[in-house]
Computed example of a mutant assay.
Amino acid sequence: MDITIHSTFLPHDDPDASLAFYRDLLGFEVRNDVGYNGMRWITVGPVGQPGTSIVLHPPAADPGVTEDERRTITEMMAKGTYAIITLATPDLDATFERLQADAEVVQEPTEQPYGVRDCAVRDPAGNLIRINEIR
């Protein structure tokens, strides 16, 4: 099989703040920005990797989600326990230095006992972003 990861979805509760975080802070390019019924879906991705994208979506957009589920999702987002993504960089220290002034730091660069050196921050919606160092 020849399978790749094309896109992943992360919720947002403020499209402009998410756009500023992913575009301006992380340096991702905007691939799509679509509005519908007062909601926005923003697709971003790393420059030079057109086949891999993150779709930032409004969590209330799924018609199959009940009001109770929407409330739970919103509460989990606020606590930072709803969504996680792991990114990677060859220079973790420089990346962390750039992020720490504008992102909520969860963990500074750390050598993990399972063999990975990484750090963690939260995006404006509370999504946990772990960043691994490529060795």
Rank of each mutant, 00 (worst) to 15 (best):
P15N: 07
V30S: 03
T95L: 02
T110N: 07
N132C: 10
E29A: 03
D2M: 13
I73Y: 08
D13C: 14
K79E: 14
D16P: 06
I5Q: 08
L25A: 01
V121T: 01
H6W: 05
K79S: 13
N37P: 04
Q49N: 12
N127Q: 10
A83S: 15
S18W: 02
L87T: 00
T8S: 11
A83P: 03
R70E: 09
S18Y: 03
P113I: 12
V106M: 13
Y36L: 15
G45H: 03
I131G: 00
Q107G: 05
G64F: 08
D68G: 10
A94W: 01
Q107H: 07
A78L: 13
A103Q: 05
A17R: 05
E108S: 13
E67D: 15
M76V: 05
D118A: 09
T89A: 02
D62T: 10
T110R: 12
L87M: 05
Q107P: 07
F9E: 11
R98T: 08
T43S: 12
F9S: 13
G51F: 07
A101E: 14
R130S: 07
D13Y: 06
V116G: 02
S18Q: 13
P109V: 11
V30I: 15
V105Y: 04
C119K: 01
R98H: 12
F96T: 03
C119G: 04
G27V: 00
E104M: 09
P124S: 09
N127Y: 04
V116Y: 05
I54V: 15
T8F: 03
D33G: 03
L92I: 09
D2F: 09
N127I: 06
V121G: 00
Y22N: 04
K79L: 14
N32M: 15
T43N: 06
S18F: 01
I3H: 06
L26F: 08
S53M: 10
